[in-house]
Write a protein that binds this DNA or RNA. Structure first.
Lengths: 156, 156
DNA sequence: CTAAAATGCAATCATCTCGGATACATTATC
DNA sequence: GATAATGTATCCGAGATGATTGCATTTTAG
């Protein structure tokens, strides 16, 4: 099964950021509806996100979700690491018998390669934060609306 | 289940490179033994590797595997792309209903992020090739042997 | 004060991916 | 011609992960 945790968490945090900014309320139910998934999965992802202080959840009627830090202080790297727990990007076999010069050292070498690759990916994610990302999404939306209007006009 | 294709293919190609260099023979059976797996899986991975010309397989008695290109001309990036087919590093949901400014644009935005991250990782893998890697593994082996000898001497 | 509405949490189920295992055809060589 | 290799297809099982359900707990709105 495909791992949707990161993409889901990203949309969650972006939605909460927009809600905080525009003054509407975000709950696990509204997020689940916007993501075509169920509140249970949302709340599962909420655990690491609140633990790391990126989101704050208030229980009870009228409760919901808010950002726990300024959106500039939440990078996609933080988000990825929180939500993916300790899942490795690249993994090797654990139980390779040391039979030759390759197999006796492949684990150590592969660990180097995997660390390299993972670090590079995390650095790429670290260059974006929620404030940037929200701005980018809203920019995409503006140009999309422009296209929509243009098409509507052309149809008249 | 954990995806072992890349790490397995890497050890396969390194072993073939060493075999070519040292003059011993490599078959899917010997590779499978060295990896504690089965020849069928090795041969499954062989398909993309021979298709891309990284390895050449000769059928029949006395046959086996050889490098199809100079080891300097095979990067770990090539290896990863060949063996992982079109598997994406990060994937989002396909079927998000466009209900708000976030959900209407999240797919486009997430595609940017995913491409960024994947490119960064592939670039990291592209900085290594099989010649480098084999040299590194043999270097690791030499220092390991040194440690082993030192321990043996200390035990006398 | 009470009912509603939110999170927190646990258990179970369904589904999909991927490696393992097996079998056999084909091909090349000794 | 026997042997030994790849090429290929099929089926199975384990494991990961999202979906679903249910309920306890907490808070607040009315």
């Amino acid at each position: 099964m495909i791992d949707l945790r990161f993409s889901t968490a990203l949309q969650m945090v972006l939605s909460v950021a927009l809600a905080d900014q525009d003054g509407f309320r975000c709950t696990s139910r509204t997020l689940a509806e916007g993501l075509a998934t169920n509140p249970s999965f949302i709340r599962k992802l909420l655990i690491p996100l609140t633990r790391e202080g990126m989101l704050v959840a208030s229980i009870g009627k009228g409760g919901g979700l808010h950002l726990g830090r300024a959106p500039e202080q939440i990078t996609l790297r933080d988000l990825y690491l929180a939500v993916m727990e300790d899942k490795k990007l690249l993994v090797g076999r654990e139980d390779i018998p040391a039979q030759c010069r390759i197999s006796a050292n492949i684990n150590e070498f592969f660990a180097e390669v995997a660390t390299d690759a993972e670090t590079a990916m995390l650095n790429a994610l670290g260059r974006r934060n929620i404030a940037d990302s929200l701005a980018e999404v809203l920019r995409l939306d503006a140009s999309r609306m422009k296209r929509v209007r243009k098409t509507a006009n052309a149809a008249e």
